[in-house]
Computed example of a mutant assay.
Amino acid sequence: MVEPDQPSTARMIDFWLGGEHHYPVDVAAARAFEQAYGPCAPVFQSLRAFLGRAVRAIAATGVDSFLVFGAGVPTMGNVHEVATDATVLYTDVDPVTIRLGQRLLAGSDRAGYGFGDATDLGTVDPALLHRFVPGWGRRPVGVVFLGLAAFLDDDTLARTLDELYAATAVGSQLAIDFDTEELADNPQALAMMGPAFRMRSPAAFAPLLGRWTPTSEGIVAVPQWRPDGPPEQVPDAFHGVVAVRSAG
């Protein structure tokens, strides 16, 4: 693979998680952001731990297939490494990340990687969807939607989540996070996120879920969602929720 000349958030996160699938340009961007914000590894490790707990909880209800949007690098405790009996379709919109994911998952009969824009379900390859999420629209599935809400305006996010609700079967579950207003205390880091970046309070985010019904934990800071032990002590950068498609 030709080394990219632009950093990728997905590969920066891989660097913060201690992975091996990033390039010098990603490390430079990650360190520049840390100069403005502070250490990021603990924050993203906490977010990845939330992903793991959420996926295990969803799988424990009998869900055995997952569709992942904005998937990033499919390593370091990503979905198929957690739900080891499930099939998983990872999707992203970044061609470099997609090629990397396809290379890493080559030969897997449980996990695939393809293009997919969360705001347009029609962009997901039907053949991949049929292969790796065979119950789509007929059986409960897990939808993972992490790292995306901050880059969608309220109307787009609400529409996207409603379209996902309509497309999935009753009993499907959604794992989603959003960036809190914590980054406002770090204006230099906030400026680096670009004009499309949106922070939200839990009260502002809740209505955007629409018909999705949060589990009893509600919308909480990600370390607080069903922690395996004492919650990680990290900046309150992300809140998350698992929500259920409970009716038509």
Score class of each variant (00 low, 15 high):
51 L>F: 03
70 G>M: 10
61 T>Y: 11
79 V>P: 04
46 S>A: 09
43 V>D: 05
58 I>V: 13
67 L>T: 01
71 A>G: 12
80 H>V: 01
43 V>G: 05
51 L>K: 02
81 E>A: 12
62 G>T: 07
68 V>P: 04
66 F>I: 04
56 R>A: 13
58 I>W: 10
52 G>C: 03
58 I>L: 12
67 L>Q: 03
78 N>F: 04
43 V>A: 13
50 F>A: 14
75 T>I: 10
80 H>R: 09
60 A>E: 13
63 V>I: 14
81 E>D: 13
60 A>F: 09
46 S>F: 03
72 G>P: 08
47 L>E: 07
68 V>A: 02
48 R>V: 09
79 V>I: 11
81 E>W: 06
72 G>C: 04
72 G>L: 06
59 A>F: 08
48 R>G: 13
81 E>Q: 15
54 A>E: 08
52 G>F: 02
75 T>V: 14
66 F>G: 14
59 A>C: 06
58 I>M: 15
67 L>P: 00
62 G>H: 02
80 H>W: 12
44 F>T: 01
70 G>K: 07
54 A>M: 09
49 A>Q: 15
46 S>D: 12
65 S>G: 03
69 F>P: 02
43 V>R: 07
78 N>G: 10
64 D>C: 08
44 F>W: 11
49 A>W: 13
46 S>E: 13
79 V>Y: 12
73 V>E: 01
65 S>V: 13
73 V>M: 00
63 V>W: 02
62 G>Q: 09
67 L>Y: 02
54 A>D: 10
62 G>I: 11
71 A>I: 04
79 V>D: 01
57 A>L: 05
69 F>Q: 00
49 A>R: 15
66 F>P: 08
78 N>L: 05
69 F>H: 05
80 H>G: 07
62 G>S: 01
78 N>Y: 10
63 V>M: 03
81 E>S: 04
66 F>K: 09
55 V>L: 07
48 R>A: 13
69 F>A: 00
52 G>V: 00
71 A>S: 12
67 L>F: 00
82 V>W: 05
63 V>K: 08
77 G>K: 08
82 V>N: 06
72 G>Q: 03
46 S>Q: 12
47 L>T: 07
61 T>Q: 11
59 A>K: 05
48 R>K: 10
72 G>I: 03
73 V>K: 03
51 L>H: 11
57 A>R: 15
48 R>L: 10
58 I>E: 07
43 V>Q: 13
77 G>Q: 09
